[in-house]
Structures are given as structure tokens and as C-alpha cells.
Write a protein that binds this DNA or RNA. Structure first.
Length: 208
DNA sequence: ACATTAAGTGATT
DNA sequence: AATCACTTAATGT
């Protein structure tokens, strides 16, 4: 598929792109599809071609917690560790929009690290980027109050979807941030009064 | 018209 | 910030 060259042509060397085209399986997902679930063995590494994927972590009890989004040109860093170590997935990956992904079977990963400089750079750089995102998420969880967390959540969602109009219920947001709907509704109402957002049923328009 | 689901709000912990 | 209890508003059948 040509999408591979288009998306990764700038980052990976041409020979590697050719090899990718040979061995990778292209998979399509639609909104809400589960790509990887908790406890699942991961035997191939996904390279995102189009769309947005939401990464969610489940805590020991019940609660789901939003971690970060992956966009075009990203890869799921967790899956590298999972492939190499044959570990079960600690996270859930869900398609947030229509998504196209190239799945690379795990037997190629280590081999390419030795053979392609661009692959090494790509893997290391994704690790660095993901580490940054994770740190941000941690700061968010540990040090910020609910209002800040919601604002951050809205910003990330706008960025990831490239759309200021967010569709969904307050309850969904509450679930992703592991809080109650009432709290979310109150804070959103406050943000609306401050002219930062506009609220409609099943819809939030972000003005910042 | 009625039932269901989403959102708003005061009071309490 | 969470929970309760209730109201109001939008939407589906």
C-alpha cells in the first residue's frame, strides 16, 4: 500500500519501506473497535497510517483511565515490549476514528534494529515521545485538580481528532477520567460560563 | 403521548 | 470532589 510510503517515507529508508510493504498486514478499524485489549498477547507491532487510537489503562478495581492518543505516524510503544518479552498487554487500544494500521509481525522487529539505522532512530524516538506523554499524564493525574484534568482532556481530544466539536456524553468523560458524571457536568458548566466552551446535548464545542 | 437518556443543581459529606 | 436526590431538557418509539 502506498499509504506506507506516504506516512513513513520521510522517516524510514526506502529499502525498509519496501520490506514493510512485503511483510506488514494492513488492517482497518472503525470507530469504537478494540485493537488491543488487556491481557491479550501481542504478536505484531502496529504502525498507524491514518486515524486516531485511544490508549486506556485499567486500574486494579474497575475503572478505566484515559492515557493518551496515538496519531498518524505513531506506533504503540507498549507493543514493542510486549512483542519482545511475550508479555500480555497492560493497556487497551481503541479506535477513536476510522483507522488504518500496518501490523508488522514481531519476528522482523529485532532483525531490523540491526539492519536499518532509520528503524533504530524511529523506535528510539517513539520511545522518547511516548515517555514524554506518559510523564504528562502522570503529572496530570497526580498533581492537577479535576478542572485542569478536564481542560487537558478536552485539549488532547481536540488535537487528536483535529476538530473543535467533540461528540459524546458527560458520562463518557467521567468514565475516562475515573470520576462521576455530576462532577464533570458541573465543571463543564463552569467552563461554559467562562466562555471557554459551548455545551449542547452530546456535544461540546471547544473555544480555546 | 409516554418512556428513556442526558444534563443541571442544591444540599450533604 | 463524591454522592444523593431530584428537576429539566432532548430524543426515541
Amino acid at each position: 500500500m502506498d499509504l506506507l510510503r506516504e506516512t513513513y517515507g520521510g522517516v524510514l529508508e526506502p529499502e525498509l519501506i519496501l520490506e514493510l510493504q512485503r511483510v506488514a498486514t494492513i488492517k482497518n478499524f472503525t470507530e469504537g473497535d478494540l485493537i488491543i485489549d488487556y491481557g491479550q498477547y501481542v504478536r505484531s507491532m502496529p504502525l498507524l497510517l491514518t486515524g486516531t487510537i485511544k490508549i486506556i489503562r485499567r486500574d486494579m478495581e474497575q475503572g478505566d483511565l484515559f492515557l493518551y492518543y496515538l496519531a498518524k505516524g505513531d506506533t504503540c510503544t507498549m507493543s514493542i515490549a510486549c512483542c519482545v518479552g511475550l508479555k500480555k498487554s497492560e493497556i487497551r487500544a481503541e479506535a477513536e476514528t476510522e483507522t488504518v494500521v500496518a501490523m508488522v509481525p514481531k519476528q522482523y522487529l529485532a532483525d531490523w534494529l540491526g539492519r536499518y539505522a532509520s528503524w533504530r532512530a524511529f523506535i528510539l524516538q517513539s520511545y522518547a515521545a511516548r515517555m514524554d506523554e506518559l510523564l504528562q499524564s502522570i503529572d496530570n493525574l497526580a498533581f492537577m485538580d479535576m478542572e485542569s484534568r478536564i481542560v487537558y482532556y478536552l485539549q488532547e481530544k481536540v488535537k487528536a481528532l483535529d476538530n473543535r466539536i467533540l461528540i459524546g456524553t458527560h458520562q463518557q468523560i467521567a468514565t475516562e477520567l475515573n470520576t462521576s458524571r455530576v462532577v464533570v457536568s458541573r465543571i463543564l458548566k463552569k467552563l461554559e460560563k467562562e466562555q471557554k466552551i459551548v455545551l449542547l446535548r452530546n456535544e461540546i464545542r471547544v473555544l480555546f
